[in-house]
Amino acid sequence: MDFKGLLIILLSAVFINNYVLSKFLGICPFLGVSKKLNQAAGMSIAVIFVMLMATAVTYPIQKYLLDPNNLGFLQTIVFILVIASLVQLVEIILKRYIPSLHKSLGVYLPLITTNCAVLGVTILNITENYTFVQSMVNSLGSGLGFFLAMVMFSGVRSKIEGADVPKAFQGLPITLVAASITSLSFLGLTGVIENLFA
């Protein structure tokens, strides 16, 4: 296995192609749940978990069910269907067997059922022609990237809370401005990862 290739996929998913800050997917939890650090972390861990699960399930469906039968055009709807039921199933299982984990992740799971970042990861894995292992690594990286963005942004937001914001910018406007600046900062990392292993 090409370890270096996997490492590049992982790191570029975290830093370069960050789902929230570069591809603008999964913005709603990014703005909605990033107010407090522990909530942001809880949500992100749930997203990492669901991204991995979703990739593990949707990859075989694409390769062994849709592709051989020329049903590639059903990709989006089938993935939504499968991911939504999968997350529901995971929630039921967690509730029954690991109540403590359900308590900390449970509230976020229904939020993720149709999250575009999760759907985006599974579909991009296919379009990038990744192998199964590469897909899993990419999902892990995307999840970690989401985690990084959420945790960073919750820090930024806690700073904003104490800042003296002009009245017209209070609330959502200043949050969006902060989000765009945070996203700009990630632009500076472009090209770093590829050259790291050159």
């Binding site: 069910l65 059903l74 709807i77 499968v82 039921s85």
Partner: peptide, 26 residues
């Protein structure tokens, strides 16, 4: 060809969820 696979997958998901929610009901 579009509808049947979706319906089948949907039914499978539904059955799994119903069974799971009954078996693992808290």
């Amino acid at each position: 060809t579009a509808v049947i696979p979706i319906v089948i997958i949907g039914i499978i998901c539904a059955v799994v969820l119903v069974v799971a929610s009954k078996v693992m009901a808290v």
